Amino acid sequence: MEIRSIGIIGAGTMGNGIAQVAAGAGFDVILLDINDAALEKGLAALSKSLDRLIKKESTTSEQKAQTLARIKTTTLYTDLAAVSLVIEAATENQAIKEKILAQVDQVVSKETIIASNTSSISITHLGSLNSRPERFIGIHFFNPPPLMALLEVIMGKQTSPETLKAVLAMATKMGKEPITVQSSPGFVVNRILLPMINEAFFVLHEGVASPEDIDTGMKLGCNHPIGPLALADLIGLDTCLAIMEVYQAEFKDDKYRPSPLLIDLVAKGHLGRKTGRGVYVYEPK
């Protein structure tokens, strides 16, 4: 079981980043999204990402051209029929992911591995909806995928050792450092990280300190490269809220209750960097 070609569903921030990493590592990539406009936007972001790496002398113009040449785009699920692996990289919404994965299951071969790039949703549950749950697995890339070394590889209850072995080999070829975890809400990193971010919103809401002082405290006191509130803006406040809501529903424990301030900011559409305003206000690019 060797992964040679990869289909990626979703050309947004995570999807185009994963496509960049995969194509840069030599895999043939098919990038799928709902329409050509979304695909064009994703490829433009990918190209700019490669340009930044060229400026940093982390890659070359020739390598950029080779990476882009390995990526094909489509709006048709049937074009994924022959790939070795499909990675669903849609928004962190269980219903949307279930709908996408059901379509994938109908068109790929019985040898294809199907994966979800989810940060919180149960891989065991998603795999149970697949006709071949032994070939279903979680592959959690971190944002931004081209720069973050970690890869969480999540085993569902029915994921086979052979599937895990193939994905770990792929991760190594991509230059990532994979860790293997069991299916549980939030897995390892986000299970620890998101409650910390949520607590920072409680501290801010209670007027204990300013956003700047909260972030400075965590950077200098805990040696974090970025403060929790600035990180929330980077992740997207809507994503943070969605993950906390999953934890609260799954664990049925009030310690995962989302901060009222986080809920309020999302309701106002202040989602962080992507909207120009979250905890902080950002200048238009």
Rank of each mutant, 00 (worst) to 15 (best):
E2G: 03
I3V: 15
S5F: 05
I6R: 04
I8E: 00
I8F: 00
G10I: 05
N16Q: 15
I18V: 13
I18W: 11
G24Q: 06
G26P: 03
V29N: 11
L32M: 14
N35L: 14
E40H: 11
L43I: 15
K48D: 06
K48E: 11
D51C: 02
I54F: 01
K55P: 01
K56Q: 13
T60R: 07
Q66A: 14
A69Y: 04
T74H: 09
T74E: 11
Y77N: 06
T78K: 14
D79L: 06
A81L: 01
A81W: 02
S84W: 09
T91G: 04
E92R: 07
I96M: 09
E98Y: 00
Q103R: 13
Q106W: 01
V107R: 07
V108G: 01
A115K: 05
S116A: 13
S120K: 06
I121T: 02
I123F: 05
I123S: 05
T124A: 08
H125Y: 14
G127T: 08
S128D: 13
S128P: 09
N130R: 07
R132K: 13
E134S: 15
R135D: 06
N143Q: 13
N143K: 10
P144N: 09
P145C: 09
P145Q: 09
L147V: 14
L147P: 02
L150H: 09
I154W: 07
E162F: 01
L164Q: 13
V167R: 12
M170A: 15
A171R: 11
T172I: 13
T172C: 02
G175H: 12
E177A: 14
T180V: 15
T180D: 02
S184G: 07
P185I: 08
G186P: 04
N190V: 06
L194K: 01
I197K: 11
E199V: 04
L204A: 10
E206C: 03
S210W: 09
I214C: 07
T216N: 13
C222W: 11
G227E: 09
P228W: 05
P228S: 04
A230L: 07
L231V: 08
G236S: 14
D238L: 07
C240R: 01
A242D: 04
I243S: 12
M244P: 05
V246C: 08
Y247Q: 06
Y247R: 06
F251Q: 13
K252V: 08
K252L: 10
D253A: 11
D254I: 09
D254P: 12
R257F: 03
R257D: 06
P258G: 03
P258Q: 00
S259M: 07
L261I: 03
A267C: 00
H270N: 13
G272Y: 00
R273M: 14
G276R: 04
V279F: 03
K285A: 06
K285I: 00
